[in-house]
Structure formats: structure tokens, C-alpha cells
Simulated assay, not measured.
Amino acid sequence: MGERVCAVIVTYNRKELLRECLQAVLSQTRPPDHVLVVDNASTDGTPEMLREEFPQVEVLRLPENQGGAGGFHEGMKRAYEQGFDWLWLMDDDTLPSPRALEVLLLEGRALFRGSFVVAREDEGRTAFPYPLKEGNFSSAVEEIERGYPDGRIEGFLHLFPGTLIHRAIVEKVGLPLKALFLWGDEMEYRLRAQKKAVDMETLTRAVVYHPFDRQSIKRIRFGKRTVQLPFHKDPCRHFLILRNQVYFYHKYLGSSRLALRLLLYALFFPSRLGLLFKAILAAYRLSGTNSHPLERKEG
């Protein structure tokens, strides 16, 4: 018997997008062995739609909205405990191309494999930037594919749109940190995996479609170096971005890089200094309480 794959899809109040996503997942040339939808307490008729149109899909309905971080935490935990070998992770706004899972399984080498995330609004662009070999980043599909003619970007991936993760990685790295809720939980998980020397890759022939990154970016140039500061017009979402960035910069990237980032935020977003201060306090409170269940302790 071959290795078994569970697709884990997190949704919240977007039943039309979820319907499209499920249709694409169930129509794969190599379909997953099981599909688990984690419903973050949707109120738009999602449960009814799932019962009527997708009775073959398992639904894990959470009692309250726990954000993307909580949704993937609970979904990955359920699929892991059910014994699946591979977990194929995505939000409800991810639309996998017909061969995406087949390519991930057949062409991947690492146990942590990323799909190539192309923008739904423009198939010539990626939804998120990818690194080029000379150290720059690009969102131009042709340029990225030209830079990686073997179809493999080693050491990098974007979570969670179409990520394929082996259960051995869950054992080693743990589960997403629920407390991050939204905006940055995917970066924290990738940094945590990198800290544990987990091999990862993106396969450019495993295409999934996803909306452009909804964060706005302010780019600041220092000679040849560019610093990107994400922000959001909604103060609540901007708070989550700030808090979660302070958390993972402090935990994984170093105090000097964090200090520079905080200084730049203060200079370029002076109207939100109060929000920045609250985010810093919340991030340091968070750093003293986090845990990653299933994570294997080293040493």
C-alpha cells in the first residue's frame, strides 16, 4: 500500500471559494486519499453546503474562529493522529491545478514541499515573491522559471497554499502556533523548520492559484539592500502583523534585525506608534507562553 495523503483545507465564511477549492482538490490526477475541511465557525451557510454537496469530505467544525493558525493547528493535528503519511495544506482561496498533487508526490525530494503559488488575478505573476539565485526576489513567473530550469527552488517555500508536508516533519517541528491567529503564522512555522535544519523546496511545476498577497508593502532601499515593511489599513490586522513579526524576529532572526525593523516602523508609521508599542508588549508576553505540541525536543 502506498503512502496516504490527507488534504487539509481551512475555511471561514467563504463558501463559494471553498466550493471551487474542493472541486479542484477532488479532481486531481492523483486525488488525495482523504479530505479534511477545518471550518472556523463559519456563519455563511458553509456547513450546509458541505453536507449537501460534499458528503465524502470530513468536516472538523471549530467552536469559534481560531484564525488560520488555529485552523491549521487543529487540522494538522487531526490528520497526523489519523495516521496519514502526507498532509496537503491550503486555505479555501487556494485553487490547485489538476496535476499539482501528482507533481509534488512524484518530483519532490524533501519532506517539506511547496507548490508554486501563481496569482489568480494574473497568471504571469506569482501571488508572493520568490528568491532568485543572485539574491533578489521576483514575482514574474517567466523570470523565476528561467532561474530554476530544473523546476526546483531549494531551501524555500510559501506556507500554506498547497504545501505538502510529511508526518515526520510534524513530529520534528510541531504544529502551527495557535496564538498567532493570523498574518505571520506561516513565516513562524517556516523559520522554526529552518532552525531545525529541515530540508524544503518549491516545485515550480506544481502550480496552485491564490489571490495576490493582501498585505501592503512599503519598500525602503539602503543602497543595494531593500527592507520590506508590511502593513494593513485595518488597525486590528496591522496589530497582528506587528505583533507576530516582533515575535518571530525576536525568536529566530536576532535582536539587531528586530531593533532595525522597529526603528523603521516608528519612522515610517508615526501615526501608529501606540499600536506598535502594544504589539511589542503582546509579542513578548506571547514569547513566554508558546508551545508547539508534537514537537520532538532535541538533545
Score class of each variant (00 low, 15 high):
V8E: 05
V8P: 06
I9F: 04
I9G: 04
Y12E: 08
N13Y: 10
N13M: 04
K15N: 06
L18H: 03
L18D: 05
S27D: 05
V35D: 02
A41K: 08
S42W: 00
T43K: 10
G45K: 01
E53W: 07
E58D: 15
V59M: 07
L60V: 04
G67V: 09
G67Q: 04
G75Q: 01
G83A: 08
F84T: 00
D91E: 15
T94G: 04
P96W: 07
L104K: 00
G108T: 02
A110L: 02
G114W: 02
S115T: 07
V118S: 09
V118P: 00
R120Y: 09
R125I: 06
P129F: 13
K133A: 15
E134F: 04
G135A: 09
E142S: 12
G174S: 09
A179I: 09
L180H: 05
L180M: 15
G184E: 08
D185R: 02
A193W: 00
K195G: 07
D199Y: 07
E201L: 01
T204S: 13
T204N: 12
H210K: 11
P230L: 05
P230A: 04
C236H: 13
I241A: 09
Q245L: 12
H250P: 07
H250A: 14
S255Q: 13
S255W: 11
A259P: 05
L260N: 05
R261Q: 08
A266S: 15
G274D: 15
L275C: 12
F277G: 11
K278N: 14
K278G: 06
A282M: 10
Y284Q: 13
L286Y: 03
S287T: 11
N290Q: 11
N290Y: 14
E295W: 02
R296I: 09
R296F: 00
K297C: 12
G299A: 06
